[in-house]
Write a protein that binds this DNA or RNA. Sequence first.
DNA 1: ATGGCTCCATACTGGAGA
Length: 258
Amino acid sequence: MKIATYNVNSINARLPVLLRWLSEAAPDIVCLQELKAPGEKFPEEAILSAGYQSIWHGQKSWNGVAILSRQEKPQEIRRVLPGDPEDTHSRYIEADAGSIVIGSLYLPNGNPAPGPKFDYKLAWLERFQIHAKALVNMNKPVVLAGDYNIIPADEDVYKPERWVDDALFRTEVKEAFRQLTGNGWTDALRYLYPQQTIYTFWDYFRNAYGRNAGLRIDHFLLNPAALSLLAAGGVDRHVRGWEKTSDHAPVWIEIKNG
DNA sequence: ATGGCTCCATACTGGAGA
């Protein structure tokens, strides 16, 4: 079973690229982020015609997350991250998808830091850690996939010295990610490729993709049951080179049938 | 330090992204 995550940076602006990539990569389950569309503008029919049933949580202009499946329709478990009834951003959706539990997340960017946006990011991370703790020991494989807006380590950014004060690379944020991976979650791509340079995002500015000035910020966290089934993973980086593409590339893992 | 690019809103400009 192939599971992918892709920050599309607008589901409607990206629809041709998304459909092209779906037919090429043929993932079984897909987590999408940054739909940038209200619920009623989600292109459900076009995605159905491509063979995928979807659940989504949209929002006008910003954020928005979805889960697609080629098999049966994902069974929604929740569409908000627990812990703050005041939080209006659409940044989390979770479902039962066949044999696994899958969460699609879009963590706040947090810039500029320090400031209220960074405070919101840290608060969101704290809620996420609490929720992740509730999921980690399930007997079922659990996969938490998405745009974490966290650069976990120096090797995950082209010039770490330029990012030290950025909300994606601040100590508090790296520490939160380190705590997650110390509490039973595994960063699947880093686990598969301990030494390699892996990027999932390249800025639209300054020919960042051409210069390979990238970041690794889209991640798969696996609980022990999911890790025991992990077979492969990678980044479809060539998609970042297509016309009218997102600034993120799709990332995927392959899970054995457990 | 800035700006470079792309997206959205209801707009010919500004906010957000990372």
